[in-house]
C-alpha cells in the first residue's frame, strides 16, 4: 500500500486525526502527509469532511427520506442533466444512479415531514423527466458511514492480563 492509500484510509477512518498522528501511524513525515492531503483535495479525490450525527441524541427534530425516482429520457436529456438539476437543491443529501427497478436513489433531509413531502411534490415531482417518485421516510438509524449508532460495547476485558 502506498502512503497515499494509507492516508486516504486513515482519513476515512477518522477525518479528525491530526497530520502528526497520521504520520506516526504510517511511519511517515508530517510534512509528507500534509502534502498528500493537499494533493488529494486538489485532485478532487477528497471532496469534503463532515461529522456523522445521530440526531436522536439531539434536541433537534430531523426528518430523512430515501426517495426512489424514475425518469424518462429523450435525445436532448441525459441522466446527468436530470441529476444536476435535482442535486442543486440543498435539501438533497445524496443522489445516486442505481441499477434495478428505478433510476435514482435520492436522500432528502428536512425539519419536518411536511417540509420534506412539500419539497418532493413541489420541487422534484414537477421536473418534466421524472415520471414517478416513491418516498420512504426513515424511522430509525443503526449505522452510517461505517459508524454504529447506539451505545457501543463496553470493554469488558480484564484490565491487566498476561
Amino acid at each position: 500500500m502506498s502512503s497515499r492509500d494509507d492516508v486516504l484510509e486513515l482519513l476515512r477512518e477518522n477525518a479528525r486525526y491530526t497530520v502528526e498522528d497520521i504520520a506516526r501511524q504510517i511511519d511517515a513525515d508530517a510534512n509528507e502527509v500534509e502534502g498528500i492531503i493537499a494533493d488529494l483535495e486538489a485532485e478532487g479525490v477528497v471532496k469534503g469532511y463532515r461529522a456523522v450525527v445521530d440526531w436522536d441524541e439531539t434536541e433537534e427534530e430531523r426528518v430523512r427520506a430515501a426517495v426512489e425516482l424514475n425518469v424518462t429520457l429523450d435525445r436532448e436529456t441525459s441522466y446527468n442533466d436530470v441529476a444536476e438539476r435535482i442535486a442543486k437543491f440543498p435539501k438533497v443529501e445524496s443522489l445516486h444512479l442505481v441499477s434495478g427497478d428505478y433510476d435514482f436513489m435520492m436522500e432528502v433531509e428536512g425539519d419536518s415531514m411536511r417540509e420534506v413531502s412539500h419539497f418532493i411534490s413541489e420541487k422534484v415531482a414537477p421536473v418534466p423527466e421524472i415520471t414517478q417518485t416513491v418516498t420512504h421516510y426513515m424511522m430509525d438509524s443503526y449505522k452510517e458511514s461505517g459508524i454504529f449508532f447506539g451505545d457501543g460495547d463496553d470493554d469488558d476485558r480484564l484490565s491487566v492480563s498476561p
Binding site: R157, L158, S159, V160, S161, P162
Partner: peptide, 16 residues
C-alpha cells in the same frame, strides 16, 4: 491487576 482495578479512569496498556 489489583492496582489497576482500584482506579476509575484507568487506561490499560496491560492487556494481553
Amino acid at each position: 491487576f489489583e492496582l489497576a482495578e482500584e482506579q476509575d479512569d484507568i487506561i490499560s496498556l496491560g492487556v494481553g
